[in-house]
Design a protein around this nucleic acid. Structure first.
Lengths: 187, 187
DNA sequence: TATGACATGTAATCTGTTACATGATTAG
DNA sequence: CTAATCATGTAACAGATTACATGTCATA
């Protein structure tokens, strides 16, 4: 019954909790990086942490350090670590692509620490495979639109296409880096 | 008191309703294009339409065409058109950028029909201005991260940077197109 | 006349946003 | 001692997802 669906904020928290942190620490990470998109408001984070704890994915322990303020440090449980790994290793589908890169990039960013470089490489290859038909479809949409739509709508679509093309390039660049690193036999 | 906040799905609907449509038509547009991200589920769209109607931004009229099925066609009211224009012309801030390009691109895509080519050009220039400090900040984040973070996290950030760079290029490309078009004096 | 696509909706549930509340600790 | 910051929360509300419900029309 690990089938309790976890929203993306939950996974973001699980990923960050690979390094034990308090709710406050997590909020700071969110608000100081480009992870702001996952909400840095206490009204989202604290309830989410409690849900994860109830689901047995994390454990919170109150820090007893002498003169410190009350601070609850959360850690991943083995189950939580398993859930995180499962999520990271999901194959990348075209729906994933259509609903934005945020989630994909989050999974990739966490992959190396959570599992290892081989998993990161696998994500890149899965992404590369999903990208080709997606780009194809977008280009066809552009052709179909060309006669009908106003310039701005057409350009907006072109922007999307360019951004996926740049993603495609990045994928190759990153694959190269990982393959070098692994042939070099580092770690 | 037009201060009722409208969620992005609401604006997407307003923009599409520049061409009168039924709820079902709108759903089809959502599910057949890259606008899926704004939810194509009836449980989101129909309540949203009712909210917009209650706010006086759209008007629904039941189509009386002879043998047709019941179909309610929605149209923008003058107030709705004004609200749409106001939203499109908002200056683009760095927060807009940080929370994703979806909204920005939606505004741009609608701009030409809702207001005109001059408005589209204005958005592009506003976007260009917002992009430069944003890119700067991301590059600094990358430098700061270089020593500390694992390869995958660093590459994920690089991916973001590349995508904003490609957006920057697209901005120039699009500005050129609009300037040519307007000098050429095409309506 | 039964099936499937058209067209519209509702109800339960979950999550996030907003705004406020609480108390402990440190700096001036 | 007072203000600011640290650290954690709560309550009210809006909105989305999911899954189901309803009825119409065309076609086989």
């Amino acid at each position: 019954m690990s089938a309790t669906k976890i929203p993306s904020l939950g996974y973001a928290l699980l990923g960050l909790l690979q390094k034990p942190s308090s709710g406050y620490d997590l909020r700071k990470v969110f608000s100081s990086t480009s992870m702001k998109t996952y909400s840095d408001s206490p009204g989202a984070i604290y309830p989410a942490l409690r849900r994860l704890e109830k689901a047995g994915l994390i454990r919170g322990t109150i820090e007893e350090g002498s003169g410190l303020r009350r601070r609850q440090i959360f850690r991943l449980s083995p189950k939580g670590h398993g859930e995180l790994k499962k999520w990271i290793m999901l194959p990348i589908t075209r729906e994933d692509l259509a609903s934005g890169l945020k989630t994909i990039m989050l999974r990739f960013a966490f992959s190396e620490i959570a599992i290892g470089a081989a998993a990161s490489l696998a994500i890149l290859k899965s992404l590369e495979a999903a990208l080709q038909p997606h780009l194809q479809a977008l280009r066809e949409q552009l052709q179909a639109m060309k006669a009908v739509a106003p310039t701005s709508a057409r350009l907006a679509l072109e922007c999307g296409i360019r951004s996926y093309e740049s993603l495609f390039d990045w994928t190759h660049y990153s694959i190269t880096i990982y393959e070098k690193q692994m042939n070099g036999g580092v770690s």
